[in-house]
Design a protein around this nucleic acid. Sequence first.
DNA 1: CCCTGCAACTGAACGATGCAAAGATTCGTC
DNA 2: GACGAATCTTTGCATCGTTCAGTTGCAGGG
Lengths: 208, 208
Amino acid sequence: MQDSAERRPSFGKKFKYHHGALKPALLAAAEEILVTQGLENLSLRALARATGVTQAAPYSHFADKDELLAAVAEAGFQRLALQMADEATGQPDARGRIEKLIAAYIRFAVANDQLFCLMFGRELAEMKNYPTLAMTAGKSYALISAVLARRAGVDAEETRFQTLAIWSLCHGLAQLIMDERVEVGQFGAHDIDGFVRRAVGLFAAQLG
Amino acid sequence: MQDSAERRPSFGKKFKYHHGALKPALLAAAEEILVTQGLENLSLRALARATGVTQAAPYSHFADKDELLAAVAEAGFQRLALQMADEATGQPDARGRIEKLIAAYIRFAVANDQLFCLMFGRELAEMKNYPTLAMTAGKSYALISAVLARRAGVDAEETRFQTLAIWSLCHGLAQLIMDERVEVGQFGAHDIDGFVRRAVGLFAAQLG
DNA sequence: CCCTGCAACTGAACGATGCAAAGATTCGTC
DNA sequence: GACGAATCTTTGCATCGTTCAGTTGCAGGG
């Protein structure tokens, strides 16, 4: 297979030395590799190969592999927050909203396990280096926090505690399911919503 | 610095071609590197360097890097279960035992964050390949599960639910603290025990 | 219209890593 | 003391992240 014919995706008109839209193409290819081959097989070189450019090309758009991963993760956080917000709309009371938010969170983790690994994994532990990432990552937490904070008659300190407790429960379950340390369905309800409803019920007294 | 003098730890009597106790030495060096330089800098080559052997020597004792990491993780799980059991002894009721178990778990995660990352990280996701690892890893869960199961008047299904809920809460909080997505002390009690006591209180009705 | 400057991309290279294969050395055992 | 097995060394390969000196194409000023 000759190089110029094989490695070039043959852009419509004529041979293009410049790719033109490499940055979004890289991000798209990254997500694709993530779901098809897993996070451990997502290398910059494989990414460049999939996009039809040289291995050094990504460095024109990302300073680092970490910066690229951070961008992918940020897109993930965006989608996560969106899905959570979507599911929670239309719920009349705080309890219903919390249930939907958590269920959406866990479903997202299960459905996009590799992406979730990247988002909450160790490779982006230095998230502080990417301020926009940190901001986007906080949205999901803010959704839960906001619901709890908007209640009357519950002081701020109690709200902080509940938010953290619910967030921990939610995040922990997602992790355990992903690591296959636990099987959804081992408890009676046989589904995520059942467990979530029951877990949120623990806070029922305060949720009204 | 000449090689034979520098790279060899100079075992008491005379120069030894065979290290003699490479396997435990590797495991010890691995934990050392883990705490001093982090999981991402724990390479087989660095390990061999630290132990004073050639880069291929570890392969006489471990088939794989994963097998080595699995052994380190297993030791970690052993210590974790031990610490949990230690703290829980002497507690009169189920609630006290659960509180101590969880607090010990979270303290372990905070104190040994890199090791915890390894134990619950993605690199050992294929834990099924290491049956003894899976068994040891289950001990901590079993500790909590046993306390809850030994109560009178609570059916098995409710016990399963509570175990999973508490386990999720516990694991999730540990993860969040480690990832620095949350600061212990943001809630009133200003310490782990305070939060744990309060969180376990959510199950108070059933814990008696 | 050409020229110049700049951003995007190439090609080649460096060092590090996990791992395999083959040879050297020591240990345990008959 | 000899021999086979276990341990360790040497050498080498493929891959990876990253850097760097060039090459290519575009846009704007003369």
